[in-house]
Amino acid sequence: MGAVRRLQEVGVPFFSWLCGVLLLGSVIAVIGYLFVHGWRSIGLSLIFGTTPPLDALLMKRHVFNGLFPAVAGTLSLIVLSVCWAIPIGMASGIYLAEYAGPGTKAFLNLFFDILAGLPSIVVGLFGFSATVFLNRLFPGSIHPCLLISSIALAFLVLPYIIRTTQMALEGLPLSARMTALSLGASKLQNIVHVLLPQSLSGIVSGVILAIGRCAEDTAVIMLTGVVASAGVPRSLFSHYEALPFYIFYISSQYTDREELATGYGAAIILLCICLVLFLLAFVVKRQVSYHALYRA
């Protein structure tokens, strides 16, 4: 018996340190490998190629050998998706937190939990099948494009925004809720002028993480319109490039060392974007571990 106990006292900490070292070691290996092989390609020419940066930004000239179109595509994708997802997501969150009764809330929560748990490729397949369906209704006019991708991505991040809005509102103390009401404000005035401003940090951190999700997701966009080479997106109805898809594409289709180096560069840029967004969300609200659970 004594031997078993001694074994526990030594074995449990030993095993846990072993696991910790293994996990940290693997993560450092992944990130380190990327930087060791990719740092040389980091620079302005990685993004703009041989085109002068100002000309590229002002759309005067096309960028052929840089990541500029992919970066521009990812940015437009983020802006559009978040634009679709914020109004509907926040409104649903407000409804859940402030209006819905316990029964309705449990009922709706079931759907949002399911939506949050869906693999992103399934959401992509939905976007794709909706396109096929619309194409049957209006032959020849609807194709996979930036608009479709951004709507599908908005569906993907919708549960994030609903959840963070709801949690932020429900976390407010009773005293904060009652003051304006007791002064004669209506329920909606109370929400708009008191409750939302007070829960802003929670909502903003949710939006930032939603942005991160839009930046990194590949499965949705590869079914809904992203292509390997399209230039800077010209309209909502055009094909476009995106950083994560570029990384995926290069990993299997690279033809020379230079292209592969650009792939490494793109991976470093994407990783940095996502980590900076994560830090930002952390600074805005110090409790982000909960969000971590919301990645499926």
Binding site: Y33, H37, P244, A292
Partner: peptide, 24 residues
């Protein structure tokens, strides 16, 4: 520090794991 590192790991894009997976 360990906790923050693990939280940070949730922010690493999947495609990065795939990319490093292929080459490493």
């Amino acid at each position: 520090l360990l906790r923050k590192t693990v939280e940070m790991m949730t922010g690493i894009p999947t495609v990065i794991y795939g990319f490093v997976g292929i080459f490493l």
